[in-house]
Design a protein around this nucleic acid. Sequence first.
DNA 1: GATCGGCCCTGCCCGC
DNA 2: TGCGGGCAGGGCCGAT
Length: 290
Amino acid sequence: MPELPEVEVVRRGLERWVAGRTVASAEVLHPRAARRHAEGGDALAARLTGRTLEAASRRGKYLWLPLDGRGSALVAHLGMSGQLLVQDAATPDETHLRARFRFADGGRELRFVDQRTFGGLDLDELVPDDADGRVPATVAHIARDPLDPLFDAAAFVRRLRARRTGLKRALLDQTLVSGIGNIYADESLWRARLHGAQPTDELAPARVRELLGHVRDVMAEALGQGGTSFDALYVNVNGESGYFDVSLAAYGQADRPCPRCGRPIVREPFMNRSSFRCPRCQRTPRRPHP
DNA sequence: GATCGGCCCTGCCCGC
DNA sequence: TGCGGGCAGGGCCGAT
């Protein structure tokens, strides 16, 4: 369940171990891994062969590796259970190995492993972004994330308050702000003492800015802890045991005491999944958004 | 145009 | 013991 901090750790690993290397051969081993690529997995692999992966970029939970010439990029999304691993060729194939890239330098190979196949790879053209950079066309609709130096906090506050929806729905909307998933949404709302059903258009701007500060804090803490363990010749996001040592106050803590007030955390259905909150610290708003 | 719900997928875990 | 069902959930797409 990688969210922004976990994806950033992977990006750093790709930058260190993969950037600058030339693809000698590529294999896509499962059709769903390349389902976003209109021409299919074999064509994706063929188009990558002989190309150099120049760098590793990220926006929200999307990763991409610009190819030599910089006109296009290999795009990756880890979904819920995706991993990008830099492995010795002698390492046995993982059970859920979906794609493999071998390099011309004969060094370790890059593997895309994904149990639940929500993740995927694509090869896409780069288009100008909202500043002076370039992003893959499939990523162009994704908002900047709160750790991005060009993230526009004032615009975020304005756009969020213009929505007519619930606060947690807005936080999860990657076209409004990217990188926030269910876990960091719940943790940020808990820190801000806000209910996920709080109507966005009834929130004071100062409260939105305060919430944004908590989003940044919880992500920065997770990134700080995740980054320290990342020193091996190995790029890893573990969907099962991930989330490093970030101590979760609300998410997944049903029936455990709220670290702030001691009242048991409650679990509630939300968009076919779950939300966790403290019923005392995060009171239901007078007019909750359904 | 904005918002919302359904769907994709597999492994684990729980209850019967 | 075995099996069925619930659950995890990001993003796309169609419906409203």
